[in-house]
Amino acid sequence: MSDHKTMTLTLIVWRQKNANDPGKFETYSAKNITEHHSFLEMLDCVNEDLILAGKEPIVFDHDCREGICGMCSQVVNGAPHGGQDRTTVCQLHMRKFKDGDTIYIEPWRARAFPIIKDLIVDRTALDTIIQAGGYTSCHTGGVPDGNAILIPKPIAEEATDAAECIGCGACVAGCPNGAAMLFTGAKVSQLALLPQGKAEAVARVKNMTKAMMECGFGNCTNHYECQAACPKGINVKFIARMNREFLKAQFA
């Protein structure tokens, strides 16, 4: 290892045994952390110490640890994913912190995301929104050749910008209203931009926004916190596009 500098940090972590427990903050010390540790590897180290001391480790959702699966979900020092531009908390590295720092770690907080345990929340509401219409109703097989319908590059690129959403829910956690407009807007826009999605665009935007409201998500009041929190940098223009699609749908 090229450098042996280590850090000691104070962690103030939300602990909550289950959905019914009121929960509270607990303080821990993270020792021997290097700048190359990822944030989750830092927590792994803390957990190893807790286990060996016979204490319950901190549970948190994580899986790919490369910023694409959308499973990790922690509010670090008040910012979803820790506030580094376009970075999931699993990709956040300890070089962004200093020796002696105090770090607050909390779960996503939103009405639609009940806490399951510690830093783990239930995000099935996001699945419910997709199930309401986040697809094209094509059958397996019986579809035209991939090149039968041309899609201009700028359209394909813009659809991809929207499609980059990893469904982590940081936009909801960052929003003062707990809204899922960026999440929903991204899927509505991706499919509304592409010729394959246009046939069902009217029903889709109506059904998805309805599901969004029914799941207990709030509404957009243009704070743009969602875009700031989004680890993929999804642009709020997709909320505007969804609103246009929604308005159009009222007259369709």
Partner: peptide
């Protein structure tokens, strides 16, 4: 073909 029909943005 299937993925294009689903709206996969290749």
């Amino acid at each position: 073909d299937q993925c294009v029909a689903q709206g996969v943005p290749f």
